[in-house]
Write a protein that binds this DNA or RNA. Structure first.
Length: 640
RNA sequence: GGCGGAAUAGCUCAGUUGGCUAGAGCACAUGGUUCAUACCCAUGGUGUCGGGGGUUCGACUCCCUCUUCCGCUACCA
């Protein structure tokens, strides 16, 4: 029986279209899945969508659709995207699948029956778009600190999961199994920031919306995201059903890929749920890094979100997949830029691999009418070429086991470079001038074809369509010559007839293409900007603004963003705490005239009562500058 | 503030447990070549391996300290 291998991506939230970061995770999972299949494993590759929650409910309302219609349309788009990116998932789970919902309800009931879930009360300020609760202190201007929108005071009866109960077992598991959470730096973060500080029980139900899985024994509650979304990894396998053979075969998962922003949920909450269910934990959670754009993270508000479908359409799926996995070390953050993408395509794909194939096929056509056999004579350079291939095949396989995709690709390219060099060493065009050298010439071309064949197999996990094109040009049809194990043997091709086809990867004019991309990507950004609702003059006049003068200022202890200042506003002196310590030193801050919001409700920050707010301008990078009157004017002057 | 990373060639980064003249790719320059997608091959770096101390026969690699950047977290009125 084949060994099984189970790999998952997170399930994505279809409130919007996906971006290149989602593609990154999914392409990585796909490369693992394809590689394992080639190595003879029985692979289950799961991806999907997390479709419940209040945000979806509201987004659907905005578009005048039912929640189901709304998610259906986005899910169609996502499936199309995965199709164009050659994502070979075995199963696509949707949390709206009837079976998933049934199982989630069963899980909830089971945990409740065994007292891992209990009923209590939850009160907090809730931001719907962000689906987050905040404390009073976290709010900005009484609004959501993340998106700036209104929050609602929500008090609801809720069910809680006894997360705290599993704290010690979680700590032990992470400490005893260094491979469980990778890369290692994530282990420290989880242990130090959460586990050792102490876990709080987790709210796992809601009454504030209905778009979710109902709690079977208490119909006014729906299951909140944790149990619903995380359990997809086992409900997809038929867990707790009478047809659970996939669960028996594939669980525990071998690798669960997640972005580093959700490591916490997958390394703490998810294992705790599994412990409560009495199931094994996944063998590995891998928290990969982010694609960074111009030094910052991708975000809708900055408007630098990269749409993968545009890139795939222009350069092909294989090129994008190659870039994503080659450019960035998997555990770390890496830069994404159009420039880097096109440079990679040109130098690695067009110049190295594409051109190697092209020149080899062209020579066989030119010197042998397209047909060669293995009857040629070896050149003095063959031994070294074979050794290079052997070494790099081993290194590549080793890298794949560790999920070092960029190293794996580098080793493949070492072979490609060696083959290009081999052509210069053996100078076939000179051999071709003397009929005496015909066997030597054929030997050289045969070695090249063999090398390219091996490369073609090795790139398959990363670039699923290019190998077919290569084998077609080389005239390799036998399955034996294209299966993984055949890369360990050099010289398998007996006789082939080649046929030149289109260039595998056409060279791209870097400068023209950058301009063209800019033109496509930027207008798109403009149109996506959300229109801000207008306010009335009455709304505005509610805010009382006055000129103040900073008369003293010092850093707040144990907080690196905060300055506490005494501000003179007319005859009054107020204490105000501001998050500007990174941009103004206390010394330079003293004496400045600033604009103060005087009728904000006082709030306690780091133990200090702050009586107002100093207005600042903020740029894309989050840098703050205070607003000052254009001419000198008395403190206490009102602003209107 | 707590915890954890990182700082190496113009750019992006490798450098496993300390050991011969510190590497790769890209970019740039020169030469070669013409089979090939103006491509390929060769050659070219006085890099203070962030600064300063220390351990050692020997440190990019270990220890201390400082600086800067980043992540998680607290916090941003």
């Amino acid at each position: 029986m084949k060994k099984s291998f189970y790999v998952t991506t997170p399930i994505y939230y279809p409130s919007n279209k996906l971006h290149i970061g989602h593609s990154y995770t999914t392409v990585a999972a796909d490369a693992i899945a394809r590689y394992k299949r080639l190595r003879g494993y029985d692979v289950m590759f799961l991806t999907g969508t997390d479709e419940h929650g209040q945000k979806i409910e509201r987004r659907a309302l905005e578009e005048d659709k039912s929640p189901q219609e709304f998610v259906d349309s986005i899910v169609d788009w996502i499936k199309d995207l995965w199709a164009t990116m050659d994502i070979s998932y075995d199963k696509f789970i949707r949390t709206t699948d009837p079976e998933h919902k049934e199982i989630v309800a069963k899980i909830f009931k089971k945990l409740y029956d065994q007292d891992d879930i209990y009923k209590s009360e939850y009160e907090g300020l809730y931001c719907t778009p962000c689906e987050s609760f905040f404390t009073e202190h976290q709010l900005v201007n009484g609004k959501c600190p993340d998106c700036g929108r209104e929050v609602e005071r929500v008090k609801e009866e809720s069910y809680f999961f006894r997360l705290s109960k599993y704290q010690d077992r979680l700590i032990k598991h992470i400490e005893d199994n260094p491979e469980f959470l990778m890369p290692q730096t994530r282990q420290n973060e989880m242990l130090n920031n959460f586990l050792k500080v102490g876990l709080e029980d987790l709210c796992v139900s809601r009454t504030s919306f209905t778009w979710g899985v109902p709690v079977s024994f208490d119909e006014k509650h729906v299951v909140y995201v944790w149990l619903d979304a995380l359990s997809n990894y086992i409900t997809a396998l038929g867990y707790m059903t009478d047809h659970d053979k996939d669960f028996k075969k594939y669980w525990p998962a071998n690798v669960q890929l997640v972005g580093k922003e959700i490591v916490r949920f997958h390394a703490i909450i998810w294992p705790a749920i599994l412990m409560a269910l009495g199931e094994e934990l996944p063998k590995q959670i891998f928290g990969h890094g982010w694609l960074i754009i111009n030094g910052g993270k991708m975000s809708k508000s900055i408007g630098n979100v990269v749409d993968p479908s545009i890139l795939v359409e222009r350069y092909g799926s294989d090129a994008i997949r190659y870039f994503l996995l080659r450019e960035v070390a998997f555990g770390q953050d890496g830069n994404f830029s159009n420039n880097a993408l096109i440079s990679r395509i040109n130098s690695d794909l067009a110049n190295d691999l594409g051109n190697l194939t092209s020149r080899t096929v062209a020579m066989i056509e030119k010197y042998f009418n397209g047909q060669i056999t293995n009857k040629g004579h070896a050149s003095p350079f063959d031994a070294h070429v074979k050794q290079t291939i052997k070494n790099n095949v081993e290194l590549m396989e080793d890298s794949m086991e560790k999920l070092f995709f960029n190293n794996a690709l580098e080793h493949i390219w070492n072979i490609i470079r060696r083959l290009n060099k081999y052509i210069d060493e053996t100078t076939p065009w000179i051999l071709a001038k003397d009929p005496e050298n015909k066997e030597k010439l054929m030997g050289v071309l045969h070695t090249l074809v063999e090398g390219i064949r091996i490369v073609g197999i090795m790139i398959e996990p990363f670039m699923p369509t290019t190998p077919k094109k290569i084998f077609e040009q080389l005239g390799i049809t036998s399955a034996k010559l294209t299966q993984w194990d055949s890369i360990h043997e050099f010289g398998l091709i007996k006789k082939i007839s080649v046929q030149k086809g289109d260039n595998l990867f056409p060279r791209i004019d870097l400068e023209k293409e950058l301009e063209a991309l800019e033109a496509i990507q930027n207008p798109a950004k403009e149109s996506e900007k959300e229109e801000e609702p207008s306010i009335t003059i009455e709304d505005f006049s509610k805010v009382k603004l006055k000129i103040g003068e900073v008369i003293s200022s010092e850093k707040v202890k144990k907080a690196d963003k905060l300055l506490v200042s005494k501000i003179k506003i007319g005859s009054e002196i107020r204490t105000i705490v501001s998050g500007i310590a990174k941009f103004y030193s206390p010394e330079e801050f003293v004496g400045k005239k600033v604009v103060v919001v005087t009728n904000l409700a006082p709030v306690k920050l780091r133990g200090i009562i702050s009586e107002g707010m100093i207005l600042c301008a903020e740029n894309d990078q989050g840098e703050l500058v205070t607003i000052a009157p254009e001419k000198d004017i008395m403190s206490g002057s009102t602003i209107k």
